[in-house]
Nucleic acid binder design. Structure first.
Length: 414
RNA sequence: GGAGAGAUACCCAAGUGGCUGAAGGGGGCGGUUUGCUAAACCGUUAGUGGUAGAAAUGCCAGCGAGGGUUCGAAUCCCUCUCUCUCCGCCA
């Protein structure tokens, strides 16, 4: 949610921001109008309520005053009904307006305008044609897709034997790594309620991307960002406790609506996947530095695994709804001869903290203010699994186990 | 799943229609006393959300959440959520 004051006072700037995102202006316009109407009537109703209060005697009112009070009450009731409708309109409209990109976010219309910030690691040279991970995984008995389709449906996978062990090793490795990086480990529920999804920005606009449990207000969480960020919903944190850095491994569930036919093979795009998530709460002064820390923490996983990757700064047309600035980490997939997203590290400014009411008490003046939230994958486990299979494959189909995983897996070759 | 009890401010707790945005206690903060500490005593202390304002400050909301009754609701009615106790079931 944007600061209402900014929308009122810097309307042109907000409008530019929406344009830079290719975001239709009608949401903003609708909001601005509703906001104006609502404030006007709010003042009117407040005034009437105050009059009513002043008129009300301490004990039982005499008949004459009672008449006046009744009239006043009717007037208030009528206007208040309208006010409630307007208030609802303002609140709803506000939830559909995306965040304002930070000035450093490159301008651009689509992912083609994203900027590669740096490339890290060396792309492996193969003396043979590298196979795609789903082929290696199935041949090697690590993955099974057909059975998963029978049991559940398309876009699900089964990990088997050393495959299951590798996935588990990766989860443990990543959590340990993030603990070294200063993140406190959390094991949250994977089911969340609407309000939490609204707090982080998935609802109300992106309900179609989520699985809802029938007959309840429960949803399968699409990312632990939801649980971790909402761990502090509706709270006021003393400044001394900041930054708060937390991490969690969770399964994530996404409908992948609108991506029919895309990435149908392998582990790249599933309805259920494992992810280690990083969430950070920072003061506005420290949040930019916080994003750098978060990004470095995500990168540390890929560096330790010696997977080649690049850092991409997403342009205004490509950053997510809630984000003001996003770096994607993209890992090298030899079979696709391309980089694929494995982590997305975002700066949300006070957008989520306004929605979820996450505030902090400033040391300087004792006042309460919205803090800044950041999050990123640290990193997507399934895609890391896939990247290891592809980058560490041998001609005979075996896979070298990355050195840092060997203590976890107790194998050097699988 | 069955039966019952509860949710009031930082904590405990009083409050069944107006003088209560809230008694009392604890805690916190300030002070008196004191060699220091403790005790005692005196004083003081709701955070928050919205809105108007350059600000000082004003106004409105707010007693688990949402509705309703009433001129007026912490108090009466309805729905929901959560917590606790007992029984049943279960990893």
């Amino acid at each position: 949610m944007l600061d209402p004051k900014i929308v009122r006072e810097e309307y042109a700037h907000v409008k530019d921001a929406m344009n830079s995102r290719n975001y239709p202006l009608n949401f903003l316009e609708k909001y601005a109008q509703a906001d104006q109407d609502w404030r006007q009537l709010q003042q009117e109703v407040d005034r009437l309520k105050n009059e009513q209060k002043l008129l009300t005697p301490k004990g039982k009112p005499d008949p004459e005053i009672l008449e006046t009070l009744k009239k006043k009450s009717d007037e208030i009731k009528e206007k208040n009904d309208t006010l409630l409708i307007l208030e609802d309109a303002v609140k709803t409209a506000a939830l559909y307006i995306p965040n304002i990109p930070k000035p450093e976010t490159p301008l651009g219309k689509s992912e083609d305008d994203n900027q590669v910030v740096r490339m890290v690691g060396e792309i492996p040279a193969f003396s043979f044609t590298p196979k795609p991970h789903e082929e290696i995984g199935v041949t090697r008995g690590l993955l099974e897709f057909e059975k998963a389709t029978q049991i559940t449906g398309a876009r699900f996978a089964i990990y088997k034997n050393n495959g299951a062990r590798l996935e588990r090793a990766l989860i443990n490795f990543m959590l340990d790594k993030q603990r070294e990086n200063g993140y406190t480990e959390i094991l949250p529920p994977v089911i969340v309620r609407s309000q939490s999804l609204q707090g982080t920005g998935q609802l109300p606009k992106f309900a179609d991307d989520l699985f809802k449990l029938e007959g309840t207000d429960y949803w399968l969480s699409p990312t632990a960002e939801v649980q971790l960020t909402n761990l502090y919903q509706d709270s006021i944190i003393p400044e001394d406790e900041l930054p708060i850095k937390i991490t969690a491994y969770t399964p994530c569930f996404r409908k992948e609506a609108g991506s029919h036919g895309k990435d149908m093979k392998g582990l790249i795009r599933l309805h259920q996947f494992n992810k280690v998530e990083l969430v950070q709460f920072e003061t506005p002064e420290n949040s930019d530095a916080g994003l750098a820390t978060l990004l470095a923490s995500a990168e540390s996983v890929l560096q330790a695994l010696k997977l080649p990757y690049r850092v991409v700064s997403l342009c205004t047309g490509d950053i997510g709804f809630s984000s003001a600035k996003t770096y994607d980490l993209e890992v090298w997939f030899p079979s696709q001869n391309n980089y694929r997203e494995i982590s997305s590290c975002s700066h949300f400014t006070d957008f989520q903290s306004r929605r979820a009411m996450i505030r902090y008490r400033r040391n300087a003046d004792g006042k309460v203010a919205y803090l800044h939230t950041l999050n990123g994958s640290g990193v997507a486990v399934g895609r890391t699994f896939a990247a290891i299979l592809e980058n560490y494959q041998n001609q005979d189909g075996s896979i070298n186990v990355p050195e840092v995983l060997q203590p976890y897996l107790r194998e050097t070759l699988i």
